[in-house]
Design a protein around this nucleic acid. Structure first.
Lengths: 165, 165
DNA sequence: GGAAACTAGTTTCATATGATACGAGTTCGC
DNA sequence: GCGAACTCGTATCATATGAAACTAGTTTCC
């Protein structure tokens, strides 16, 4: 494969780790994820996957694990384990799926809803703190660019499960 | 803690996972990292930490592991293991550190340099493919914003090791 | 000069992750 | 109907990660 860095590549053919986008993305994401993960873990004993399930269930009501997998972009094993944890703490409840005996429908219990209501403001406060000092347009652009990258990565890896936006 | 989403928060007090920046960042980063990690692993048998060490050593010559830790933002255990792997494959060599008997100085061997020269173009091509379709200013802004987020996360977590740019 | 406090790097351990195999249920094709 | 092919969720395994303990070497300070 002939390398031909197209538009916008760092500085012309030079590979500098500090300027390398995948590296920068990973480092920034780790910093942010670590912060958030610690906060949820320390204060509420939740893992990030568990918190994501709670969020989605709070938004969308009763879903199967398969739907949660699609919705959260996490592995089905991760979702299974997170769901198990939440079940043990009675934050979500399972009910039989009408049409499919293999599947269950998950929904937040009142406790789960309560916890979500408690954490959500904190989560938003964290986001606000992270982007404080950025202009709203910058944040919007950032989100668009992230989606682009995700989609490009999906295309390159041949995976279909990526936004084609 | 009173939640008070400041400037630029998604849409007013609503928490939607899809619009939540830490989530978006994590998903995008995972997609990109996964792509890159698979490429290095499949074609060259390198892990991402190993590749990062190679990059930094190619840029900066002989460094101690401590310097590598600082330079790559990775854990010292991760660096230790990555270095071990590279040593086993004779891609880097160790020499005694003059002033400090605990430390060794790591540098690429000719083979290591050769591998770097082989991979670097591929790495740049990946980056180029990822950002193809983005304007150069957008890419530059993206990198700046990522640095900002990383730095903000560092501040919030009380860690010093973050760019104060 | 030598004990206490410190630092570089490794080892150990506990946990997290995802690929793979599996068990149970479903759908398709005949 | 009933077996083959498939899908949902779980269990198993192999690997990756980082926290904490540890070893060996260094600095500090009396």
């Amino acid at each position: 494969m002939k390398p031909e860095p197209a538009s916008g590549a760092a500085d012309e053919g030079e590979l500098k780790l500090d300027a390398y986008l995948p590296y920068r993305l990973s480092v920034a994401s780790n910093a942010v994820s670590g912060l958030i993960a610690r906060a949820y873990q320390d204060r509420f004993g939740l893992t990030v996957p568990q918190w994501r399930l709670i969020c989605v269930l709070a938004e969308d009501g009763g879903l199967t694990q398969g739907q949660l997998v699609a919705r959260t972009v996490m592995d089905k094993v991760t979702v299974s384990r997170a769901a198990q944890g939440l079940l043990n703490r009675h934050l979500v409840a399972r009910s039989e799926h009408q049409a499919d005996g293999r599947s269950h429908v998950l929904a937040l219990t009142p406790e789960g809803s309560g916890l979500h209501a408690e954490i959500a403001p904190l989560a938003l406060a964290y986001e606000a703190a992270l982007i404080s000092g950025l202009a709203p347009e910058e944040v919007a652009l950032l989100k668009r660019l992230l989606t682009r990258l995700q989609s490009a990565a999906g295309q390159l890896s041949g995976d279909p499960g990526s936004p084609t936006v």
